[in-house]
Design a protein around this nucleic acid. Structure first.
Lengths: 196, 196
DNA sequence: TACGATAAGGAACGTTGTTCCGTTTGGCAA
DNA sequence: TTGCCAAACGGAACAACGTTCCTTATCGTA
C-alpha cells in the first residue's frame, strides 16, 4: 500500500514537455476519431489525426485498450460515483438501480462500438474489461444488494452477470434504428422485480 | 420469374465430382474447426484442415458468412420449424415462446462465437445477418403475436428487437463460467409478462 | 553550448481476409 | 482409348490492420 518513500506514489519523474503535449493531443484526437469512426477506428487514423507517429501512441498507451480507458475515464468515474448518490437520494433502491443502469446504458450507447469491444474476449482488451468491471461492478452490487434487502427484487443474480448482460444488450444499439437497447434493458430490469 | 426452359430452376449444370467432394470436405472441416477454435477461426485453418487451397474455399463459399450459413443451415431450419410445432403442442403461447427462445439460446451458446459474429456490423456478414433474421424473425413474430393475443405479454416489442436482444445476451456466454446467458434471457422473457 | 537521456517517426513484421493467375484434372467426344 | 478444354485447384500475392524496432531528432541541463 506504500512505496516505501514515505509519501504518495513516487511521483513519476515528470515527463518531458513534448511528451505531455503529445499525450494531450492524442487524447483529443482519439476522442474525435472515436466519435466519427467508432472505438475500433484504426490506430493509424488516430495517429494521423494527431499529426503524430505510430510509435508515439504505443509509447503513451501500451495498448489500444489503455487509450480507450484514458479517453473515457472521466465518464466512467462519474457513472461510478453516481451510484451511491442515487441510492442516497431518497428513491427506492430499485428505482435507484434503474436510474443508474440507465446512466450506464446512455453512456455505452452513445459510444460507437464501445459495448462491442467491451465484451470482446480477444486478449489485449483485458485491461479495458478489467477497468470497467473493477470500477462499476462494486457499485452495481451495492445497488443490487440494497434492492434485494428491501425485498424489491430477486436475489439470484449477481452484479457481474447483470453488468455483462446490460453491456451486451447495448451492442449495436447505435447504427440500427430498429433496435432500442434502452427498452430491452428496461425489460431486463423489470424481469428482476419480485412479485410482491 | 421463369428462365424460359419451362421447368423449375435451370438445374445448375451439375458440378464436377471433385468439386462436390471438396464442398463436402470443406463443410466437415469447417464444422470441426468451428467447434475447437470458434466461428472466427482463420480461413487458413479451415483450408489446412480440409487439405485444400485457399481459393477453393472462396470458390465454394463466396464469403465467410456463406460458409457459416452452410454449416449451420440444418440446425437453423430445425429451430425455425420447431416454432409452429411448439405453438400447436398445447402449451400456452407464452410457454411456447419461452421454450422456443430456449432452443435458440441453446443453439447459439454452443456455437463458439456465433452470437458475436451475428451482430457484427462489419460488412461481409450481411448475408449471415439476413439469413438468420429472414428465417427466424417471422417464427418469433408468430409466437409473440399469439402470446400477445392471449393477453399474456405486453405488445410493445417486436420480434426483430427481441431476437437481437436475445442474440446479444448470448455473446460470450461460452468462455465465461460466471456469465449465464440462459438466466438473463429468462429474466428478459419474464420482463415481457403482463401483470395479470 | 554540448551532451545524454527521452521521445519521436515511420519502416518493418506478423496475422488476417480476399483475389489472381498459372497449373492440374475430370468428363466427354472422336 | 485418346485428346481436348472448361472447370476446378493451389498457393503466391495483395491490402488492411495491430504492434514492434531501430534510427533520428529534441528537450532539459551542466
Amino acid at each position: 500500500m506504500n512505496d516505501g518513500d514515505g509519501g504518495a506514489v513516487p511521483a513519476a519523474p515528470r515527463k518531458r514537455a513534448d511528451a505531455r503535449r503529445n499525450e494531450r493531443t492524442l487524447l483529443d484526437a482519439a476522442a474525435a476519431v472515436f466519435v466519427t469512426s467508432g472505438v475500433e477506428a484504426p490506430v493509424r487514423d488516430i495517429a494521423a489525426r494527431a499529426g503524430v507517429g505510430l510509435a508515439t501512441i504505443y509509447r503513451h498507451f501500451p495498448t489500444r485498450a489503455d487509450l480507450i480507458i484514458a479517453v473515457y475515464r472521466h465518464q466512467v468515474e462519474a457513472c461510478a460515483e453516481a451510484g451511491p448518490a442515487l441510492l442516497a437520494s431518497g428513491a427506492t433502491p430499485h428505482a435507484a438501480l434503474g436510474r443508474w443502469i440507465n446512466l450506464f446504458v446512455d453512456f455505452l450507447v452513445t459510444k460507437h462500438g464501445l459495448a462491442a469491444v467491451l465484451q470482446s474476449d480477444s486478449a489485449g482488451f483485458d485491461t479495458l474489461h478489467a477497468y470497467f468491471l473493477d470500477r462499476l461492478v462494486p457499485v452495481c452490487a451495492q445497488l443490487l444488494d440494497a434492492a434485494a434487502v428491501a425485498g424489491e427484487i430477486r436475489s439470484d443474480i449477481d452484479a457481474y452477470e447483470l453488468m455483462r448482460g446490460v453491456g451486451n444488450l447495448c451492442i449495436g444499439a447505435d447504427s440500427d434504428p430498429r433496435y432500442d437497447a434502452r427498452r430491452l434493458v428496461e425489460l431486463l430490469i423489470a424481469g428482476l422485480r419480485l412479485p410482491h
